[in-house]
Amino acid sequence: MIIDCSNTLPEFQFQGATDINPKNEEYRKLFGQRWARLAGWTKEEFFKRLESESTENVMQEVYAKLEKNFSMDQFLKMLRDSTIAYHAIHNMDYGRDGSEAPADHDYVAELLKKYPDRFIGFAGYNPHKGTESLKVVRKAITEQGYKAVVIPPYEHGIKADDRKYYPLYALCDELEIPVWIHSSINYYRETSVFLDHPSNLEAPLMDFKNLKIIAGHGGWPWIPDMIAMLLKYKNLHVDTSAFRPRYIAEPNTGWDMFLHYANSLLQDQIVFGSDWLTLGIPIKDYIAEVEEWPLKDSVKEKFYWKNANKLFKLKLGKEVSYGLEE
């Protein structure tokens, strides 16, 4: 049984092929080839098409195939076949100003109601939208079945310790819900790579003693700093989403220290997160790569579901399948 703490819905992941900021063309090339792989293309085929066609046209074709392959019924079957008990839906609220209304959380709320005990809703907060965004998040948590909040500082253009986030942290502290924070490298050329450094989590953890944070994407490439933070703050958790597991297990990639401490002192603070849709890797293949990690069986069980079960107060028991059957 597995609880995936970092993911989204196929329709969120694969929509808007032309929405990516042209200033950040790297993202199109980085993720486009991965999504094309899920659609059945090879990397070579993808780049060959880009030589003679626009990115927009190529991606629209890829998305059309993905829309067919990832219908909700097909998607749910993939989760069942891979023993995913709960799958995260990160309903992000992007943007670097308050010119737009807060993200709509109603659609995901309907899915949470339609598919109970299947998804974990993460409500997106945007600090530039202030009180209006906070109201939406509070409603999502208290009325609509969401169990967590998600913020991507690099998308907001401010660090996680910026005081604009503090009203959210106070709310999460009050309601005893975790907040997932992007804490790894970003590839935006016009945004500092250090904006998402793990050290930016320290002030919130010091100022809100009961605040529970999930450091998303493992803190790479600052693994020693991430480990130091985890050793110091027991309310801090971490996932390794958005990186291929086989890369994490490969020597000299920067993850060696993580695997060492995950197997010992940090075994109660690690949670499974994949972002397999972003990576363009079928979930069964992603899990197969994790199985090659040198983790003790008891630690692997905590990583897969026990730690997240406690963090999200899901009250799961190992002896129950929780909707994994047909």
Rank of each mutant, 00 (worst) to 15 (best):
I2T: 01
D4K: 00
C5E: 01
T8M: 08
T8N: 03
F14W: 06
G16E: 04
E26M: 14
K29Q: 13
L30G: 07
F31R: 10
G32M: 01
Q33C: 13
W41E: 03
F47D: 05
L50F: 07
E53I: 11
E56L: 08
N57G: 11
N57I: 14
V58I: 11
V62N: 00
Y63A: 11
A64E: 15
N69P: 07
M72G: 10
Q74I: 09
L76M: 05
L79H: 03
T83A: 13
A88R: 05
H90P: 06
M92H: 07
G95M: 05
G98P: 04
S99F: 13
S99A: 14
E100S: 14
A101D: 11
A101R: 11
P102F: 04
A103M: 08
A109Q: 07
A109C: 04
E110G: 13
L111M: 15
L112N: 05
Y115F: 15
D117W: 08
G121N: 03
G121Y: 02
H128F: 14
H128Y: 10
K129N: 01
S133H: 05
V137I: 13
I141A: 08
T142P: 00
A148M: 04
A148R: 02
V149Y: 00
V150D: 07
V150K: 02
I151T: 03
I151C: 02
P153F: 01
Y154P: 12
H156T: 04
A160Q: 02
R163K: 15
K164I: 13
P167L: 09
L168N: 05
L168Y: 03
Y169H: 11
E176M: 09
W180D: 09
I181Y: 02
Y188N: 12
E190P: 07
S192F: 05
L195E: 09
L195T: 06
S199P: 08
N200C: 14
N200L: 14
A203D: 14
M206Y: 10
D207W: 05
K209P: 11
H217N: 06
G219N: 00
W220S: 06
D225C: 05
M226R: 12
I227Y: 01
A228V: 13
L230I: 04
N235I: 04
N235F: 02
V238H: 01
D239T: 10
T240P: 02
P245T: 08
R246G: 08
E250L: 15
N252Y: 14
G254Y: 02
F258L: 03
N263Y: 05
S264Q: 13
L265W: 12
L266T: 00
L266Y: 07
Q267C: 15
I270C: 11
L277A: 04
T278E: 12
L279C: 05
I281Q: 09
D285Y: 12
E289F: 08
E292F: 09
W293M: 02
S298H: 09
K300S: 09
Y304T: 00
N307P: 00
K310C: 11
L311M: 04
L311K: 00
F312N: 03
K313Y: 07
K313N: 14
L314G: 01
L316D: 01
G317D: 14
K318S: 13
G323C: 06
G323H: 00
E325M: 14
